[in-house]
Nucleic acid binder design. Structure first.
Lengths: 248, 248
DNA sequence: TATACAGTAAATGTATACATTTCGCCGCGA
DNA sequence: TCGCGGCGAAATGTATACATTTACTGTATA
């Protein structure tokens, strides 16, 4: 608990509320009352209000009709669409990067990331089953997607992409961790990594359409994993952050 | 000036600031100071602050590094990208609509809009040059794009689309009005209307890929008009709302 | 001359009192 | 029983005093 730093109260309130929303402390649809929250957080109404405003900007809250805020709730369809949207936007970024061409240094850097991602697949030894370092993969994967998006050098595209990705279940690494079915998980990640390589190759060879569609297909893995999560444990797949937001 | 209604002060401040930003009273990059603005608008700091927060959410302001806000400024490239992004998102909406299929009633409604758009092209009589009702076209065009986006029945997609379109120069009707070159303008609008029809046809026939790419190409008309505006009058094409935001 | 530091003015951040609006509840009447 | 209307509690909206942070500027020292 190092959140009670000397940073300002708005940030504290923002952080605290975000945590509660993502982890299910404030389920989707919950109305947030300024007075109640400020008493609970021991922070006056002004920063709490400001925090809510920022979380609305972030997409976790929505403004209620007669003023005030409530926790945004997402149907399974909404989540599917958000992932699809990420695929479309990443695809656009990749296409633009391919069309415009990218700095050699950036290509070198992103290829280095590819190699590091490969390093997460430890040789399985005699068992034949690879042991995957999920935490490292998850982190590097997020970084890879970030760098990939930056290749298009478009602040406008990047901004919207960041916005979509800020929804926890739509982020590229949302479904990496804690999948119930280990075998399925290994297959997903191997396929995903193959797509990562193909994407970089397409951009390097300036194949815009190919890059775009690989990125879209890549996002479909997440979509598949989401649906698998719901099938395997429709009750509470709490492994995935932000799952609490999804109404069942 | 009916803006000094009895609505609350936050809305007044939001409206007033938005107007100033769009019409160039507050050029891109301008830092907004709460105290100065609240004195000028005769409104206390709290609603002014709230208004700035909302305009940041809208994309017209950005949060400055050390706190506070400044007017967002857009390069020509940013505007181009925003229009491209609109094309991509409208394309996605159209594709999803085609893939899922839409209610017959909605198709009927949007076809009625197509007919009304046709009505804006008055027969040119003996001159052979059509007289176009630009204002009516502009309004119907905006409505058409709105309805078209709604066909995909996806709140998530619609939300992001609304966000992009809220940038005045990225809206579908941004470049309809006040084009310097009348002949060019007529050609654009006729082409655009042909694309409108093709789009609806593609959706009706469930041709997702076709619908997507027509929508993208459709947005390219706006991009072309933007570039034409800059070539014809690089100084101050004040005809297009939001043009003041673009740094030259 | 450049840099670092301190002082100060002005900005944003915070708390809170007060104003206004909203919404639900209750009672009255048709 | 249903609907309308007003009353009241509780919510958000607003103003403002005060706190804190930031950033600039001027000066002193290396």
């Amino acid at each position: 608990m190092s959140e009670s730093k000397s940073v300002n109260l708005t940030k504290r309130a923002t952080y605290e509320l975000r945590q509660r929303i993502i982890h299910g402390g404030l389920p989707g649809g919950t109305r947030l009352y300024e007075v109640a929250l400020s008493e609970e957080l021991q922070i006056s109404r002004t920063p709490v209000r400001e925090a809510m405003s920022r979380l609305a900007e972030e997409g976790l809250l929505e403004r209620a009709p007669g003023g005030g805020f409530q926790v945004r709730s997402f149907s399974l369809r909404d989540v599917t669409d958000a992932i699809e949207l990420r695929g479309v936007l990443e695809g656009t970024a990749a296409r633009l990067a391919a069309e415009q061409g990218v700095e050699p240094a950036q290509l070198v850097a992103i290829k280095a990331l590819l190699d590091r991602l490969d390093g997460c697949f430890a040789p399985g030894g005699a068992t034949g089953r690879e042991q995957i370092d999920f935490d490292a993969y998850s982190e590097l994967n997020a970084l890879f997607h970030q760098r990939l998006s930056e290749l298009c050098a478009s602040p406008v595209i990047l901004r919207e992409l960041e916005r979509v990705v800020s929804l926890p279940f739509a982020s590229p690494s949302a479904f990496v961790l804690g999948q119930a079915d280990a075998a399925r998980s290994n297959r997903s990640l191997a396929l995903a990594q193959a797509q990562h390589r193909a994407l970089v190759q397409a951009i390097e060879q300036r194949e815009g359409a190919r890059a775009e569609f690989i990125a879209r297909e890549h996002a479909r893995i997440a979509r598949g994993n989401l649906e698998a999560s719901f099938v395997s444990d429709p009750q509470a797949p709490e492994c995935v952050p932000g799952m609490a937001l999804i109404i069942r």
